[in-house]
Design a protein around this nucleic acid. Structure first.
Lengths: 224, 224
DNA sequence: GCATGTGAATGGATTCACAGCT
DNA sequence: AGCTGTGAATCCATTCACATGC
């Protein structure tokens, strides 16, 4: 459909920011949080570039997506920029996360420190195995019945669903998440999900990463 | 240094294949394994393209990286192509994997089915917490002392190291892996590792993925 | 002077379109 | 006829280089 857009208008203009850019914005945000914690008040694109092995122009382009936030001759105000990124990435309110699949991976993710932290909150796990229902993860997240997914999502005001089931069940889980009104899904199953418009999937495929490393190793071995 | 290379010579020519391409090759391989299991003997680039929402020319280009493997007018022989990809990706021999960090994530990865499977084998976990040493994961993978990393890697002939420690310790672990002779590292810590030449890192950053979903949600909310 | 913000140039990846083989 | 393999064209991301503003 309509693809015409004025490329990069300074203000407004949502959803025209690429995945690659948002990934880097997350990285910058992490760095800014650190800089703030050590009391640094301004930072230049050159300094950020050095930290991340990136080109400073790229960083300026990335940061300019939302309008002008730096001061020429000076750099960026750490706190101001950080707050701005937090808001632009939608991290200024807590996102509630539900995990489908209470196997090893699901349980580990439920307890994973990086999640229950700064803007994300695991509200529960669901599983269709009666033996698992009612159990809790080490940190106390409860396993709820899969059948009650829609009401759980409604009552707990879940925003993000995590697929931590096997490849065969993954599409069913995604569809159920979508039917229940979720708009964002993080998939750990080693399969390509057929996604619906508006219901975004991000996939983390451990096997692809391992195979990529295997390929590198093979080249190292063959090369010498 | 030298960047000149004859772009894409049909045979030989290692390491000039992009990360994006190898990722897709892994996906194709998975699909070919499935097709073989259901007895399909040939497949066309168009059929693969439809499965993965990709362009058929891209698939042909990807598959042509290693030489010509299709038959014009017919397509690709499933078994032959699969075997070829297995060999080219270096999956024709078992890769031994060691996990550093026996926390929730490390333990879960040790037991994760997708790993101890088809070409990868978890040989153990290491941790520097004396309380954890000697414990075992559910599936029986033992936690070994961090101090003995070099000898463990030597004796178990480890190929790939996994970093499943916190962000602060991640660089230390990476460096220890590299010093012990590993050439491939999979990093789960939410930090950018300073990598050494030849010692490849692939990072899986859960938080970046969640933040990307958060950004999407914010746009959905703002837009409607 | 110094660092941002940004058009222009470059580089890489994807797609098109067709020649060539079966 | 059908499908691969691939140069040419296109698209998108990154980098360069400089005008702009503090």
């Amino acid at each position: 459909m309509s693809k015409e857009r004025p490329t990069n208008s300074p203000t407004g203009d949502r959803e025209t920011i690429s995945e690659l850019t948002t990934g880097r914005l997350s990285v910058y945000l992490r760095c800014l949080t650190f800089l703030e914690s050590v009391g640094q008040s301004t930072v230049s694109s050159a300094e950020l570039a050095e930290r991340f092995h990136l080109n400073s122009a790229q960083i300026r382009k990335d940061l300019a997506c939302f309008g002008e936030f730096g001061t020429r001759g000076v750099g960026y105000n750490v706190t101001r920029l950080r707050d701005h990124l937090v808001r632009e990435l939608g991290l200024d309110r807590t996102r509630r996360v539900l995990i489908a699949g209470a196997g090893n991976l699901g349980m580990a993710l439920a307890d994973y420190a990086g999640f229950n932290d700064h803007g994300f909150e695991i509200t529960g796990l669901v599983d269709n195995d009666p033996d698992k229902i009612g159990r809790r993860s080490r940190s106390g997240i409860e396993v709820l019945p899969w059948d009650e997914l829609p009401s759980i999502i409604r009552e707990h005001q879940v925003d993000i669903g995590i697929v931590a089931v096997n490849a065969e069940a993954a599409q069913t889980v995604y569809d159920a998440f979508a039917d229940a009104g979720l708009n964002a899904v993080l998939n750990f199953a080693p399969t390509q999900l057929r996604s619906r418009s508006g219901v975004k999937v991000k996939s983390v495929d451990l096997r692809i990463n391992l195979e990529s490393l295997s390929f590198h190793l093979k080249n190292v071995e063959d090369g010498g």
